[in-house]
Design a protein around this nucleic acid. Structure first.
Lengths: 256, 256
DNA sequence: CGGCTCTTTGAGCGTTCTCAAAGGGTGTGG
DNA sequence: CCACACCCTTTGAGAACGCTCAAAGAGCCG
């Protein structure tokens, strides 16, 4: 467990160790068209909103060794925003199987609830830092700040789109296409893809990817090999690949 | 085309023809626990909010012959709420395949947008009536009514849960389990299941169910037969089944 | 160096998909 | 009024893809 945590540290090292504390951020593609007309991620929170949020927040640091952030079915007392690192949001299926419904990256909100209970469990994938907001305080804030409320609504819409996107990815056959979509998603994430070396860091295990794409980890390994045989990628290490055919992945990344 | 429309009319006849116009409704399971502690659907809109919405809304009637409500990629000028009938929300995959990301029932909101464009297409599954709200007017309303904004946020969370649920259903193997989950979902819908006769109306075609559960329509037919052989259901007609083993479906309906 | 976990590869099997065709119900046209 | 045409549904047969089980390889840490 220990060394696995450290392994994650190396592979998922998007942020250097102990970065200076940044204000909370919530990012999303807004509803309306922006000036440049390209669907880009925007930082939704104003400086004042960030202050308001900091006032009710506590900082949480976690990694794979520290256990789940919260478990499905328990009292939903907090909502989290990701500052750095990656969190997986999990829904347990019946017989030991589980589905990762989302990977949460910096700028994302974690802690969906219904009837006072968390709907999913959340666990760190890499070492990560989150802001934790008590729901009661957050609701008080929302009642007095309609603009913040609007921003959360925009963010919720963004998460809904993301969920529908992974839905349409899972529906795809064969599996190597799902993997291509997943690689395209990772390439869009800040800090994982190095344009110069054309290398992409894969911060999660094959098991994680398998639970995300609804496939077996062995199949994933075969699909990586398949993409290599197709001359679309080059495997540098288990968690590091080089992108050979950009257009190929651009095609799979077209979906919003 | 014509007779198919009429067929849908018969099978999907949740509401009698030309019901009196009801005020707009938006339904969801709220975040917080309610008094009865059971996760039940609630009507979110107050009488005043319904009035405000009616003031900016127009009524739209549609069925399978009238074509899509809107197409993915077109300007997102309106949001819709379903009064009665069923709407499918579709995302096109590559080679003619498509994924139904959601069936929208009365009380649901349709018209998710990003950067000013609809993300999905929406088409009537049964004859239906919707309220159509211009987005501009709706945003003005939201700016002046924080409570309405909160209700939309709760509704968006509800849709997100629904999307994650179908995600975890699709991930299931074998397909007959997906179908069992789907049947359990339909049983929860108002007006489709008759408790006395134990009969369930299936308002959509095998193709629709296939595009929803990420399976081939032929496989769906086989799975219906399989459930019958297992003595879980009895096929009365293509779009009407009798539930034999309630506990079986209750088990698959457990997921939020 | 040994132990651990993650990753890769192989072989055999099972489920689902595809292609094909027949059956059923409904509206239309003769 | 009946027969036809259309679409949806069902069933069958064969092929393909992915899963399971098994085992070896690789990287990291103590």
């Amino acid at each position: 467990m220990r060394q696995y945590s450290d392994m994650s540290t190396r592979y998922g090292a998007v942020d250097e160790e102990d970065p200076p504390l940044r204000p909370p951020r919530i990012e999303a593609v807004p509803w309306s068209a922006t000036a440049d007309a390209s669907p880009r991620m925007h930082q939704l929170l104003s400086g004042r909103e960030q202050e308001e949020l900091v006032n009710i927040a506590t900082v949480v640091d976690a990694d794979r060794t520290t256990g789940p952030l919260f478990l499905a079915g328990t009292n939903a007392d907090y909502v989290y925003s990701v500052d750095h690192g990656i969190v997986r949001v999990i829904r347990d299926i019946v017989n030991g199987d589980r589905q990762i419904v989302a990977f949460m990256f910096p700028g994302d909100l974690v802690g969906l609830a219904a009837s006072g209970r968390y709907v999913n469990s959340a666990e760190p994938v890499t070492p990560c830092r989150l802001y934790r907001y008590p729901i009661k305080a957050l609701r008080r804030l929302l009642a007095t700040d309609p603009l913040l409320e609007l921003h959360l609504l925009v963010k919720a819409s963004h998460e809904l789109r993301a969920s529908q996107r992974i839905l349409s990815i899972i529906a795809r056959e064969p599996v190597y296409e799902r993997l291509a979509c997943f690689v395209a998603l990772l390439m869009r994430q800040e800090g994982l893809f190095d344009r110069r070396s054309r290398q992409l860091v894969i911060p999660m295990t094959r098991f994680d990817i398998a639970d995300y794409l609804a496939a077996a980890p062995e199949t994933l390994a075969r699909c990586f090999r398949q993409l290599e045989d197709m001359n679309k990628i080059q495997r540098v290490g288990a968690r590091l690949i080089q992108i050979i055919d950009d257009d190929f992945f651009a095609g799979f990344g077209k979906v919003l």
